[in-house]
Design a protein around this nucleic acid. Structure first.
Lengths: 223, 223
DNA sequence: ACCGGCCGACGGGGAACACCCGACAGTGAA
DNA sequence: TTCACTGTCGGGTGTTCCCCGTCGGCCGGT
């Protein structure tokens, strides 16, 4: 299966892109495209059936996106290496993708020149990452850790406490919150103190910053 | 120049996509690709030089995006029709694009089947719009109007009032705000009342919702 | 079976805050 | 000049916040 020829599966929901990728890869005699998929679900099915050396996978697909498909293939212990294609330099997705088991990450912009090299490297078992992506990695990791820490703190609260946190951040007063939840304003007070003890939020600005960072305020506000 | 053959210029910053588009359009005998461009700037130059019947233009490009290039070609009174290609159903860009002078709007998803038809229609002077896009038009317009209304309200405030609005939404108390701006808490009170009179924000939740919708809280919070 | 920890729910009281009232000076336009 | 807008401040009353303590229910440990 690997006696010279590198077999490749293409996964992209745009037919034009698949045509283009095919055209580029056909210029390399040691690479053969053995299948195509129009979304993540098809990619997983095809990869398990065809067992290609490399899956060239678009990040943004309708039914199951590239990240989800990567995770799924990893879960199913598919031996294929995965090379992620992305539109621009959306490096924020890099870390979870590598955690999910992707072997490479290529910006479509440079796909014509670098694609063949990237496929070969990934097929050999190496990782292929663009330089900018690597640089963004450290920064991203830190941000994510901080975000994750806050997320963990939030999840350490009880259900009631989370509700109170959200409502305080949204600007409601103690009595208002009590009315909304059918409890006394004094009870709301208790939760405030417990939130303070647990995760250190003391004043309203702390609540608002915390909630904005976790995106807790967008939910109830969408129209 | 239009004695049968439709001349086309391709503008997309991804070489793979250009290859794919070429492959699709080559299947139509009445269409000939006479040029390619790697960004909006090149597209404008090439279009003015080659005067193609149709410019097939990607929406998201680095140097000058499809919308800007469309506006520029319109300004230069280029006779070419413009067919916009977009990744997904990003219908929010539809209205400004049509205003800018685009003749058609095609989702890349369906580019293999519909592209040839779209190019022919646009070349004839018709508009080509996907059905979903048209349906989304009315909804988008409404949303934008509402957002724009709030934006206008915000801009109708004085500089000081805007600051107070932001700080209240961020959760600061009157005295806190006074300290930050070196004014009395009582002065802050006045601004609150004036904001109330001008744009109707009465309670803190109103402030928070308003600020979240206008994205006023993300700015000072990014790290 | 008991004890400590966590959770949901209250209340009192003093300090802090918000809200409505009025006030006044500077600036710029009608 | 008069009027509207802006930036600034104060007084008083009602509301809210914050720290204190309380109580019953539940669950896990010894």
């Amino acid at each position: 299966m690997d006696d010279d020829i590198i077999t490749v599966l293409l996964a992209d929901d745009h037919a034009v892109v698949r045509y283009g990728l095919r055209a580029v890869l056909q210029t390399a005699p040691d690479i053969r495209v053995i299948g195509e998929a129009r979304n993540g679900q098809e990619a997983v099915d095809a990869a398990m059936r065809l067992k290609p050396d490399v899956v060239v996978m678009d990040l943004s697909m309708d039914v199951m996106d590239g990240a989800a498909a990567t995770r799924e293939l990893q879960r199913l212990e598919c031996p294929s290496r995965i090379l992620i294609l992305t539109m621009h330099a959306e490096d924020e997705y890099l870390v979870p993708l590598l955690e999910a088991g992707a072997s490479g990450y290529l910006v479509k912009n440079a796909a014509d020149r670098e694609l063949v090299d990237a496929v070969r490297m990934v097929a050999r078992g190496d990782q292929y990452l663009r330089l900018g992506a690597v640089r963004a990695l450290a920064k991203e990791l830190k941000k994510r850790e901080h975000r994750a820490a806050e997320q963990t703190q939030y999840e350490s609260l009880s259900e009631r406490e989370r509700s109170i946190l959200r409502l305080i951040a949204a600007g409601y007063t103690g009595p208002d919150i009590g009315a909304q939840l059918n409890i006394s304003a004094k009870t709301v007070d208790t939760y405030k103190q417990r939130i303070h003890e647990k995760i250190g939020l003391a004043h309203r600005p702390d609540y608002v910053r915390f909630a904005v960072r976790l995106g807790l305020l967008d939910e109830g506000t969408q129209m």
